[in-house]
């Protein structure tokens, strides 16, 4: 199966400091790829590149076998990918307004049915008219995920989606992620610190350290029989960061 993303020799630096240096990374359609690693490893930067929000300094990124020119990424390509960030950046206005936002950007003004469906699915029906700023952390993160999923992206990028959430909200979000992947075959890249979450959800896991992909393997191999000693230390919880 041809990869959705093919990254080769990709680098990215901020203020002269190298943040990313990826020799090769392929992401396949319909998989959940968990990217784990310590803070500052470059995981969030990788997501921004995958969402075409920032350009790499060098290297090539192919999306569905098409080379991406970051100076002019076609809108139809950009709109197949969306990110849910760790801190749910909700717009002022109601929960419903937030869910409708992406649809309206696409010129779709009548999305009430989709909104109702999402509100039900995420247990947000009672909050449909609530102002976004009045929501709890868990509710806000559910709104952020619903707002992304209502767009039916073919690639969903999740940056620590359950960090700082209580077990109930974390479990609900994990369940939705699994469901979206299984039912809609959405490709998901999940950045997480939580290796247990990676093990529960991912088909493959990649370890990032200092901007480099150290190892990518299917979940069982990654956790039970890793090739790289650093992966082993990470999995055993021996890596201090």
């Amino acid at each position: 199966m041809a990869p959705v993303y093919q990254l080769a020799n990709v680098t990215k630096a901020y203020s002269g400091r190298q943040i990313l240096r990826i020799d090769q990374l392929d992401i396949y359609p319909g998989e959940i790829l968990a990217v784990v690693g310590p803070s500052g490893a470059g995981k969030s930067t990788l997501l921004r590149l995958l969402n075409f929000l920032e350009a790499p300094d060098s290297g090539s990124i192919y999306f569905n076998q098409q080379p991406i020119n970051y100076q002019s990424v076609p809108l139809e390509i950009r709109r197949t990918v969306t990110t849910v960030f760790q801190n749910p950046a909700l717009l002022s206005g109601s929960v419903t307004a937030n869910l409708l936002f992406g649809l309206r950007l696409r010129g779709q003004n009548d999305g009430q049915n989709e909104v109702d469906e999402m509100l039900e699915r995420f247990g947000l029906a009672a909050l449909r008219r609530s102002p976004a700023h009045a929501l709890s952390g868990g509710e806000a993160q559910r709104v952020a995920l619903a707002r992304a999923l209502i767009l039916k992206p073919s690639v969903l990028l999740l940056d620590e989606p359950t960090a700082n959430l209580d077990p109930y909200n974390a479990e609900m979000i994990e369940s939705v992620i699994r469901g979206v992947n299984q039912i809609h075959l959405t490709t998901i890249v999940l950045v997480t610190h939580n290796i247990f979450q990676a093990r529960r959800l991912a088909d493959r896991v990649a370890l990032m350290l200092n901007g480099e992909i150290i190892e990518t393997a299917d979940t069982r191999t990654f956790f039970e029989n890793p090739r790289d000693s650093r992966t082993l230390r990470f999995v055993r919880g021996e890596m201090v960061w």
Binding site: L53, V81, T83, A89, L91, F101, L105, L157
Partner: peptide, 23 residues
């Protein structure tokens, strides 16, 4: 972060500008 999120949801530059002005 909000501007980045708006872009990530598929906004054009003009739409991002509009959304930012609204915020």
């Amino acid at each position: 972060n909000l501007r980045l999120q708006v872009r990530s949801l598929g906004a054009t530059r003009l739409q991002t500008l509009g959304a930012t002005l609204w915020e």
